[in-house]
Amino acid sequence: MARITRQSLRAIAATFCVTAILSVSTGVASATNEMPPPVAPQAVSASEADPERFEKAEKICDTYVRRTNDQTGDTQVIGDTCSEDPALRAGAERIKAQRAPVVVLVEFWSLPDLEGLVDRVYGWSGPCDPVGYRFSNLTTMNANLGGIRSYVAANLCYGQEIWTNPNFAGNLRRDTGYYHPWVGPYHDGAVRSMKVYAYPVIG
């Protein structure tokens, strides 16, 4: 019988570690946003996913919405605030942290590639579910930014639909995934209503 030495045990352990590492999926998203939905997507706070985005933002706005109908996902804007002062931004973050289940639903950016001004939309009804949130009129967000040209979804809002007119009219674009560096030629600066929801949709 072959004798097991310390050297052979180390070799076995190294082989096991390499195999385990190679078996882990990196979860890289498709650049075309056509990636199938994850089996069990994790809640992602947009403001925590990449804090460096906000260091370069010229202005940060926070808009708060609540769901007025849990069957349809209709929402109402209940307040918004904007600041160019980093100290005030940090204070606002501390306040939000104490107001669970308030979460980031989507970040709207005024320029492509998540540049320029940003408006973070917070949902007072928690993360997205299959019903999601319906924004029938994005006047507040557009006024804060001068138009929406890119966005990041968060907190299970893996499916999105955007329209060029209020009340879910005009040109429709459907997206899946979290990061959208450009809304496309038809919606550039013209995102005026939106739905966000957990994917896949039920019903």
Rank of each mutant, 00 (worst) to 15 (best):
V28F: 13
S47K: 03
E58Q: 10
L111I: 06
T63W: 02
D175L: 15
T15R: 13
W124Y: 09
C128A: 11
R120F: 01
A13P: 04
Y178V: 09
Q42F: 06
A87Y: 10
R149S: 07
V106T: 14
Y122K: 02
T72L: 12
P38T: 14
P166R: 01
R53L: 12
G126R: 01
Q160D: 12
M1L: 11
T63Y: 04
Q98K: 11
Q160R: 10
I78R: 01
Y133N: 04
L145G: 06
K56R: 12
M35L: 14
A97M: 13
S150F: 01
A90N: 04
E52T: 07
G73M: 02
Y197I: 02
S8L: 10
A100C: 12
R89K: 07
E115D: 09
G132M: 03
G91R: 14
E55S: 07
F16T: 12
Y133I: 05
C128M: 04
D50P: 00
R192A: 14
L117K: 00
S150C: 04
F16Y: 09
A92Y: 12
P130Q: 03
S30P: 03
Y197R: 10
E84F: 05
T26Q: 15
D50M: 05
I202E: 13
Q160P: 01
T72K: 13
V106G: 09
Y151R: 09
W182H: 12
D50I: 07
H180A: 11
A43T: 09
R10M: 07
L9F: 06
I21H: 05
P166I: 04
S136P: 05
T176F: 10
